[in-house]
Design a protein around this nucleic acid. Sequence first.
DNA 1: TCTACACTTCGGCAACAAGCGAAGTATAAG
DNA 2: CTTATACTTCGCTTGTTGCCGAAGTGTAGA
Lengths: 121, 121
Amino acid sequence: MRALLDIARALGDPARLRVLAALRGGELCLCHCIALLGLSPSTVSKHLDILHRAGLVERRKAGRWCYFRLAGRDAPPAVRGALRWVATALRTAAELRADRARLARLRRADPRAVAGCYKGS
Amino acid sequence: MRALLDIARALGDPARLRVLAALRGGELCLCHCIALLGLSPSTVSKHLDILHRAGLVERRKAGRWCYFRLAGRDAPPAVRGALRWVATALRTAAELRADRARLARLRRADPRAVAGCYKGS
DNA sequence: TCTACACTTCGGCAACAAGCGAAGTATAAG
DNA sequence: CTTATACTTCGCTTGTTGCCGAAGTGTAGA
């Protein structure tokens, strides 16, 4: 039940749902998420940590970049069920249209270019 | 997305998960839930209200009793998906064994007898 | 009408969660 | 070694949530 609670609580925040929806298009760097959400790096890092600890997201470190992707086939059933649920339920979410557009632009760009989110911007 | 958030947040509390699991056995009176959870009437009423507002639970007033049941076929897909998810994910939750035992005793009893939870006890 | 009872709402307190900026890690590059 | 950079952790403030008891609502029965 603990796992279930962690998952449900992780899903109970709009920023985290937006990230999950974005990750359905494939792996993302943390700086991508920062640019997508428009929140401070520390806040976004914490959001991704919550998703990670709930098991919903896998993390991969490559140099100084940190990539995240949705949990895969080997994830526990509770996680897979949750991801299936949000995937279908978010399909009709109008709030995510702007995210999809912004995300398409981010994916085309190099992470190095995106990462300007740490200074200024 | 608002609906999804309400559902996820409603699922993010152990007391509410316990009630949902209990309701899989059929309709329950509020006083049943109070006795099951061992929390104060006002607290339990609020929990059920949260579940109700998320659409996960239907309420039926009969005299001064208030009965709750899981949302049915006519519920929106997000709700049905969520209920399906928790139903399968809670199947292996060891913490609910004690609840099942207590619940069986409560169901055998008349609501009028159960409702002693308001004074003393 | 008056009381009893099932439930809800209100007020208040303690714990938690989301947000930020500043400081800390760690890796890549000069 | 030093600097720059991608990310994380810390300290703090603010808003939310869970809990209770007390007071309020509405219905059933005496």
